[in-house]
């Protein structure tokens, strides 16, 4: 008898995921699969299954990976693994390596093909800078440093229109 990989009780639910021809099997007991909302009223909950899947495949959590943190939004790679959602656009660069493996499993591709925003290519570094400035502005307001806040606000406006 298979054991539930969450709690060790006898498993009666098998989740098989096939991505890019690779099969992975996970076993859960009735209770845990309901708790994980894998099954709900006899029906499949796609988004939850997807998240479980992301959790499994991102796997291979070496210490190095686990410590990876985005300097812009502060999300840790482990947090992404647990939640299945990234924290900001920059994460795609910061987590590029492990993400590519995941993207390959989801989409069987790792490069965008298709529409490019016609007005794009506004300097990416300006955008990263804008995000940092907004963060500083928030902090300045929090500590009631209003002169600094006003200066930052003007700077943001200026960057926004020229960026």
């Amino acid at each position: 008898m298979r054991k539930c990989q969450s709690c060790g009780a006898p498993a009666n639910v098998t989740l098989t995921t096939v991505i890019g021809g690779q099969k992975q099997t996970a076993h859960f007991c009735q209770q845990c699969s309901e708790k994980k909302q894998l099954i709900k009223h006899q029906e499949l909950n796609l988004s939850v299954i997807l998240q479980t899947m992301i959790g499994q495949h991102v796997g291979a959590s070496t210490d190095e990976l686990a410590r990876l943190t985005c300097p812009s939004c502060g999300i840790k790679y482990m947090e992404f693994k647990a939640e299945g959602r990234l924290g900001c656009p920059r994460d795609y660069k910061v987590f590029q390596k492990p993400l590519e493996a995941l993207l390959h499993r989801i989409h069987r591709a790792t490069r965008h093909v298709g529409k490019i925003p016609p007005h794009a290519s506004r300097n990416a570094s300006v955008q990263a800078e804008l995000m940092e400035l907004r963060q500083k502005l928030r902090e300045a307001i929090d500590i009631e440093a209003y002169e600094e806040a006003a200066r930052l606000r003007d700077l943001i406006r200026q960057k926004e229109t020229s960026g």
């Binding site: 656009p89 795609y92 993207l103 965008h112 529409k115 925003p117 990416a124």
Partner: peptide, 13 residues
């Protein structure tokens, strides 16, 4: 949010 490699960047991959 757009990157040449990954296209339009979204919260969920």
């Amino acid at each position: 949010a757009f990157g040449e490699e990954f296209g339009y960047l979204t919260a969920c991959p």
